[in-house]
């Protein structure tokens, strides 16, 4: 199913004059979340950029109901909201909107717990690949070699693949998405909202100050991540894992753009040598082989 751009809702779920940085990738995602589920969602937002962008009480820059919650707690709080609604007969979706730090690091226990018990929540991890709210510190979701203030010569470890980890929990729905492909993200949110149980969407969201690039390039860079194969769009839906367009095309390594085109726009990778780039390309290829193997292993919906 695809959605025509002029059929998307016009209501502004992101309200102008909010506290997001210019060119914030996450805000594009939040806007799409509003379009898809704005009238049905109640958000739990942990400590993150998403907590700050709401602006200052008594105003809010996001036109959805939001409970701001402790850093590690969002998946559990949303579980409580979902269970309260079930018991009280309230219709709606308990949605978590959390960053990579709040998900892959400090909140991973509550996320894994909610997944294992199949809590009826939609969890969106917007991934800007570091602690941006506190000023660009490394998270477990920071990619290898990226500069952050706590990895001044580049991160030495690989990026934790949270989406795959969630899929291996055997939950009903896991998807990756990118802010460069809003209709794909929109469709995935809609699909998630049809499913009972734990749903997880891993949203790639570039950050201009954190990745060190001109804020105009947010969408371009997010698109390049997909076109170079560095970010793979896939979906695990009730036991079936499959690639989504346009990543389906990039199974063929020859069709991918050179990784350098993605990296060279970002100051956080400015220190990389050609050899470093080559090594990263090999690591990306290994990730592709893992995803393709899983697609083979999980060919059908259960």
């Amino acid at each position: 199913m695809s959605f025509r751009i002029d059929q998307l809702p016009k209501k502004k779920y992101v309200v102008p004059g909010n506290a997001a940085c210019a060119g914030c990738g996450m805000m594009i995602g939040l806007k799409i979340l509003g379009m898809a589920l704005g009238e049905e969602a109640v958000l739990s937002i942990p400590a993150s950029c998403a907590a700050v962008v709401q602006g200052l009480t008594p105003k809010s820059g996001v036109a959805m109901p939001i409970l701001n919650v402790p850093f590690a707690s969002a998946a559990a709080v949303a579980t409580g909201i979902a269970e309260a609604y079930r018991m009280l007969g309230v219709k709606g979706h308990a949605v978590v909107w959390a960053g990579d730090g709040g998900t892959a690091d400090i909140g991973f226990g509550t996320v894994s717990g909610a997944a294992e018990r199949n809590s009826n929540i939609i969890y969106v991890m917007y991934d800007n690949e570091a602690y941006m709210n506190t000023g660009i510190q490394r998270s477990s979701s920071t990619p290898r070699a990226a500069w952050t203030t706590t990895t001044p010569t580049g991160k030495h470890e690989r990026k934790k693949d949270v989406a795959l980890l969630m899929a291996m929990h055997g939950v009903p729905y896991v998807a990756t998405a990118s802010i460069a492909y809003p209709q794909d993200f929109y469709r995935k949110l809609k699909r998630a909202s049809e499913i009972q149980g734990f749903k997880f969407i891993h949203l790639h969201a570039p950050c201009p100050p954190g990745w060190r690039y001109d804020p105009a390039k947010t969408v371009e860079i997010a698109k390049l991540a997909v076109e170079t194969g560095a970010w793979i769009l896939w979906e695990y839906d009730n036991g079936q894992l499959k690639l989504n367009p346009p990543s389906t095309v990039y199974v063929d390594r020859a069709k991918r753009k050179p990784l350098k085109e993605y990296l060279k726009l970002q100051g956080r990778f400015a220190h990389l040598t050609d050899n470093d780039v080559k090594m990263l390309e090999e690591e990306i290829e290994a990730k592709w082989q893992t995803v393709l193997a899983l697609a083979k292993a999980f060919p059908q919906r259960l």
Binding site: A72, S73, A76, A84, G109, T110
Partner: peptide, 16 residues
């Protein structure tokens, strides 16, 4: 999966 989650779950439930 933890007491931190226990308090977080009842917090969310009570707020809802």
């Amino acid at each position: 999966e933890s007491e931190f989650a226990a308090m977080s779950v009842v917090y969310g439930a009570a707020m809802a």
